[in-house]
């Protein structure tokens, strides 16, 4: 485990320049020592929740931020992952370590299933279809009582054990979600900077041009949904065992909107931005707990301000280096433009 996270760590660090390196390193150290410095169950719970939402939002960001496909039913994949994992462990007595990837794969499978008929749809139509998908999944979870116990939910979802040791401590969950967040971040950073990631971004920018460059746009959109949903499913599995109780209410439309808001607030296409958005919008309801009645007003107000003042998100557009804002005039380059050689 140590070795794995260490090699993951070096592979992230190799990809960022020195100045950023020290920033990320200090962030990582802060995250690592947080539970030791601030020994509070409450803080640990909020931090763990932040991690779950980071994974969820990073998954959605691949679909909506990079591939440009709107999805208003993201919580469905979260719920599918949670129920898959919980039911596998409770009904079939599967190990959590098997149920976790299975939850991801099940969500990815539903991503494919949703993708195949809907990938020819665009914008509003896709948004409405995914919204419908989210509701269908929630209603199935609610009404298939033989399997899911419906609104009574699934209580007593067991904690994982490792080599016979029960891992139910809050510290275990905290450090485990930190690992999951790092794995998700590395995976996403790698996908974005690859042939696959460029194809997804090409689709977002101009679908017709992307097709003309040889990109099978339908296939790539489905791939984006499947990969994103996989991580949502992983987050769902983690959440189910962490909270030990789930019911369909956890995966309602509001959750979909919350995750989408995280992606929009921080800045689509910016991985640090999405992390930031997820953390802020997870902390916000906690900070505003005192003024519970005004919580949603503040929440909505922040989103409105983002859309009005910085529609690209707080971190959007600051990622790329060496980009001048002024157009480059023709013929002002140093060499003649069309050189005959």
């Amino acid at each position: 485990m140590m070795n794995m996270s260490k090699s993951l760590l070096t592979s992230i660090l190799r990809r960022i320049d020195e100045k950023e390196k020290s920033l990320y390193l200090s962030l990582l150290i802060a995250v690592a020592i947080l539970p030791l410095v601030w020994q509070s169950d409450y803080v640990l719970r909020i931090a763990t929740l932040c991690g779950i939402y980071i994974v969820l939002a990073l998954g959605l960001n691949l679909v909506t931020g990079y591939a440009g496909q709107m999805c208003l039913g993201w919580a469905a994949f979260y719920g599918i992952g949670a129920y898959t994992s919980a039911l596998l462990v409770m009904r079939l007595h599967a190990s959590f370590w098997l149920a976790l990837p299975a939850a991801g794969l099940m969500a990815a499978f539903f991503g494919l299933l949703l993708g195949i008929p809907t990938m020819r749809l665009k914008n509003t139509y896709l948004a409405i279809t995914t919204l419908g998908f989210g509701e269908i999944v929630r209603l199935i979870l609610l009404n298939w009582t033989d399997l899911t116990r419906g609104s009574m939910g699934l209580p007593g979802i067991p904690s994982p054990s490792f080599l016979g040791i029960d891992l139910e401590g809050k510290l275990f969950y905290y450090y485990f979600i930190v690992v999951l967040v790092i794995v998700t971040l590395v995976t996403m950073a790698r996908i974005v900077d690859s042939r696959l990631g460029r194809a997804l971004q090409a689709i977002r920018e101009d679908e017709l041009a992307a097709k003309s460059m040889g990109i099978d746009t339908t296939r790539y959109k489905i791939i984006a949904f499947a990969i994103g949903a996989f991580f949502a499913g992983i987050a769902g599995s983690f959440f189910a065992h962490y909270s030990a109780y789930i019911d369909p209410h956890n995966f309602a439309f509001g959750e979909s909107i919350a995750v989408l808001s995280m992606v929009i607030l921080g800045g689509m296409r910016s991985l640090p931005g999405v992390v930031f958005g997820a953390v802020v919008l997870t902390l916000l309801p906690e900070v505003l707990r005192e003024a519970a009645e005004y919580r949603m007003i503040v929440f909505g107000g922040i989103l409105m301000l983002t859309m009005l003042l910085r529609p690209q998100g707080i971190f959007g557009g600051v990622q790329r280096k060496k980009v001048s804002q002024t157009p480059v005039a023709v013929g002002q380059g140093k060499q003649p433009l069309y050189q005959n050689r």
């Binding site: 042939r195 696959l196 460029r198 971004q201 090409a202 920018e205 101009d206």
Partner: peptide
Amino acid sequence: LFKELSVLDNVRIGAHSRGRAGI
């Protein structure tokens, strides 16, 4: 063009059909 992508990325996307790397 893919306006919000770099000049280099535009050209690399142009080479899409000559590559095979997947997920």
